[in-house]
Simulated assay, not measured.
Amino acid sequence: MNNKKDLATAMNTTSHRHSLTQLFTRHLIHASMPGLMPSAPASRRPESPGKLPAALVERLLQQEDQRGMRGHGLPIATFSAPQPAPHRAATYSYPIHIERADIDALPSAGGVYVFMGANDMPLYVGRSVNLRSRVLAHLHNHEEELLVRQTRRIEFRRTAGELGAALMEHSLVQDLQPAHNKKSRQKRCLFTLRLNLVGQPKVAQVAERDFSRAENLFGIFASERAAQEALQKLVERHALCSIATGLEESSGEGVACFGRQIRRCRGACTGEESHELHQERLMQALEDLRILPWPYEGPMGIIEQGEGWQQVHVIDHWRYLGTLDQEHQQLLPRPAASLKGFDLASYKLVIKPFLLGQLDLRPLPGLTLPSKV
Rank of each mutant, 00 (worst) to 15 (best):
R237S: 11
Q66F: 10
R263L: 13
E144T: 13
A230Y: 09
G68R: 03
G161C: 01
P95R: 03
Q329I: 15
W309H: 10
D65N: 08
A8H: 04
P201K: 08
E64W: 04
L286A: 07
W309Y: 14
L289P: 01
L23P: 05
I98Y: 01
E236H: 06
A85W: 03
E144R: 12
M168H: 02
E327P: 02
F211Y: 13
V206S: 05
A101G: 03
G50F: 06
V312T: 15
A85I: 05
E236N: 07
K187P: 05
P84A: 08
R70Y: 00
N181E: 03
E248F: 09
R45T: 15
F191E: 04
Q174P: 03
H27C: 10
S223P: 06
A256R: 08
N141P: 04
L349H: 06
L136Y: 12
V173F: 03
H27P: 04
K5R: 13
V350N: 01
P75D: 06
T368C: 08
P201T: 14
G73N: 06
S108H: 07
K352C: 11
A81E: 12
L56W: 11
E58F: 10
L321M: 10
Q205I: 11
G161V: 01
L36A: 13
R264V: 07
T192C: 10
R26F: 07
L286G: 05
R185I: 15
H313F: 06
G126S: 08
R237Q: 14
S338M: 09
C189W: 14
Q186P: 04
D343Y: 06
L349D: 02
E249D: 10
Q310S: 12
E99P: 00
K5D: 15
R266K: 11
L369Q: 10
G254C: 09
P353L: 08
A101E: 13
P293A: 13
E224S: 09
H30M: 13
Y347L: 08
A207E: 14
E253T: 11
D210Q: 11
D120Y: 05
A230M: 11
R127P: 00
R152F: 12
Q186S: 09
R59L: 12
H278R: 05
P34G: 01
G366M: 12
P34H: 09
A31L: 13
P86L: 15
M37G: 02
A90W: 05
E47W: 08
Q174T: 15
P299H: 03
N12P: 03
T91Q: 13
I98R: 00
F191V: 06
G110K: 00
I302C: 03
R209I: 15
Y113V: 00
I243W: 01
E143I: 10
H87A: 13
Y113R: 00
R263D: 15
A285G: 04
I76N: 04
N12G: 12
G271T: 06
K352N: 12
L282W: 07
S128P: 07
A89T: 12
L147N: 04
L339M: 12
E143L: 13
Y296R: 04
N119Q: 14
L190H: 01
H238A: 04
K202P: 00
F24A: 08
P38M: 11
D316R: 05
G322Q: 01
A239H: 07
V203Q: 08
A345T: 15
D210G: 00
